[in-house]
């Protein structure tokens, strides 16, 4: 939706447009599209391609405003203090720029990619352990990504988000704890007082449900 004419907008122009989304308030700019529409239509992959091909700082700024506060929240839920989370979130966004040429919009949405970068940064920062990464595929990203595939990857993330939101609360909470909490299944067991077997089967059940709702 952010077409060429929009990408020419300055940093300032993006501010009212996207910060409304960030703050979750639509009241300040009535008459604009509703919050949901803005979120769904923003072509994050397209913005990232502009960063990759043209080192487009305005496109980067738009990505930053959307993703950096989310990454910071993710890291803080994982147990990082505010200042560490702030610094790591800046790092994650810098990595997004640096590795833009490795992003393949046909394989993953930008949110998924941001998640993997943030998770790896969290492991570096909180656990100080190495985490082996699979080797990159033989075929790299296409220079001209297929728009339809890219759109599908982003829509899949949105559908997954809706499916997550519609899960029963206990299952949703467990998935969040498992992904955010930096807790192993046995640590969740210790914290919630539920037996380990129950936790494992609830997580499996929740993932199965997600899969059903996606198909």
């Amino acid at each position: 939706m952010l077409d060429a004419s929009r990408s020419a907008m300055t940093d300032q122009d993006f501010r009212p447009y996207l910060s409304g989304v960030a703050a979750g308030s639509v009241s300040r700019h009535k008459g604009n599209r509703s919050l949901v529409v803005v979120q769904e239509e923003t072509d994050w992959a397209g913005l990232l391609m502009k960063v990759r091909d043209h080192q487009d700082k305005a496109a980067f700024a738009a990505l930053f405003r959307h993703f950096a506060p989310r990454v910071k929240a993710f890291l803080m839920k994982s147990g990082a203090g505010a200042s560490l989370a702030e610094e790591c979130a800046q790092d994650v966004m810098a990595t997004l720029w640096q590795k833009a040429h490795l992003f393949d919009p046909a394989r993953a949405s930008v949110s998924t990619w941001v998640y993997t970068i943030a998770r790896n940064r969290r492991i570096d920062a909180l656990r100080r352990a190495r985490r082996a990464e699979p080797e990159d595929l033989d075929w790299g990203p296409e220079p001209e990504p297929d728009q339809a595939e890219a759109l599908e990857a982003q829509q899949e993330t949105e559908r997954l988000g809706q499916a997550l939101a519609s899960l029963p609360l206990p299952q949703r909470t467990l998935i969040e704890r498992a992904f955010y909490g930096d807790l192993s299944h046995s640590e969740i067991a210790a914290e919630t007082g539920l037996p380990l077997g129950t936790i494992k089967s609830r997580i499996r059940l929740a993932l199965d449900k997600l899969r059903q709702r996606m198909s």
Binding site: A73, F74, A108, A118, L164, I175, L207, L210
Partner: peptide, 12 residues
């Protein structure tokens, strides 16, 4: 992708 959807859903 589940992680990606959680990032998208999270409070900021």
């Amino acid at each position: 992708a589940v992680g990606g959807a959680l990032i998208e859903e999270t409070d900021e």
